[in-house]
Design a protein around this nucleic acid. Structure first.
Lengths: 186, 186
DNA sequence: GTCTATAAGCAGATAGAC
DNA sequence: GTCTATCTGCTTATAGAC
């Protein structure tokens, strides 16, 4: 009664702190090089507690890379290009901490690869549905490839010229690309 | 004298077989999940022999990801777009076994990240030199990002729609993108 | 020269003390 | 409920037998 915060609330906070530390570690060095011990140290808890809460390293990773799911894409064809640019705009603007853990391990962790492929396939379907026609899916796959490539080169590889550019500069240069790919007749 | 192949020749062949096995392993599961034991088994040699020949796992990886260096890029601006398309055309055509080991580990192995960044920077400089002008380097960085993104989505993520497409289909759809990015005045 | 045996270290996971 | 101590397994790397 005289406790300001309940036991359950305290536990919830500790769990959130562990999850945040795990996300950062997975984002920085990937699944294999992240250790339960390092996550625990970063969250100021005992390593055994991490296991107690999450069960296994795999389960912790699954929680860390889980993202709520994409919001539905408006299917207005006219503004699709601008929508794409705004998507990449915000993605480039934010530190993208939400997707970094998955991106970092997507080539070396089988489950991460599968999840990324599924995520790209979902986006692709939305784009293709918004612009039906010949080659719609292939065009859409190129769009998601470009979005992925730019994100990777900027945030993971950290190529100087791309890292130093503003989102506006990038979106302006990419506009003709997306315009070309959203037109059915080239 | 009656030996058809010399001792040195035999050793050279064994070393080549180990290196080929290492390339395949690194390409498939990345640096961390590749073990000396697995490489040795694939090459039908003793694990200790791998260490004897290459010194360490790091050294083996360095040899495996080493590529001769890119051929110089002709600086003819008129045909640059077609050149880009032919580059990605052959890259998409070949299994790309040469670059896969580096691509697979570029997010999780620090040295691989640095080497990929250096490689992209070199390509970028060549593109920028071929089309000087405003934003030349940023445009070039987007070009290499697109090339990287398409290669990744097709060969590492193996997105169905991109995996099933022919190099010609892909290059045809990408042509307007590269045309737009190689023009200085949009 | 090649391989057996083993050293040395670090990981995830677990059992039990407090 | 939380943490100490430990178990088990796997890795790279090495020393020495053959």
């Amino acid at each position: 009664m005289n406790e300001r915060i309940s036991r359950a609330e305290r536990r919830r906070q500790t769990e959130a702190r562990i999850l945040a530390a795990a996300r950062q570690n997975f984002a920085e060095v990937g699944y294999d090089r992240t250790t339960i011990r390092a996550v625990a140290a970063a969250a100021h808890v005992d390593p055994a507690l991490v296991m107690q809460y999450f069960g296994s390293k795999e389960a912790l990773f699954r929680q860390a890379v889980h993202v709520p799911a994409d919001e539905a894409l408006p299917t207005d064809p006219e503004k699709l290009t601008e929508l794409l640019l705004s998507i990449i705009g915000v993605k480039l603007g934010e530190p993208s901490t939400a997707s970094l853990p998955l991106l970092r391990s997507m080539f070396t962790h089988p489950e991460a690869t599968a999840q990324m492929r599924a995520s790209l396939a979902r986006q692709l379907e939305q784009f293709a549905a918004a612009r039906p026609g010949d080659d719609a899916e292939l065009r859409a796959s190129l769009i998601v490839s470009i979005l992925l490539g730019v994100t990777i080169t900027r945030n993971l590889i950290e190529l100087d010229q791309l890292r130093d550019a503003t989102p506006d500069q990038i979106t302006n240069l990419l506009r003709p690309c997306f315009q070309a790919l959203t037109n059915n007749r080239a």
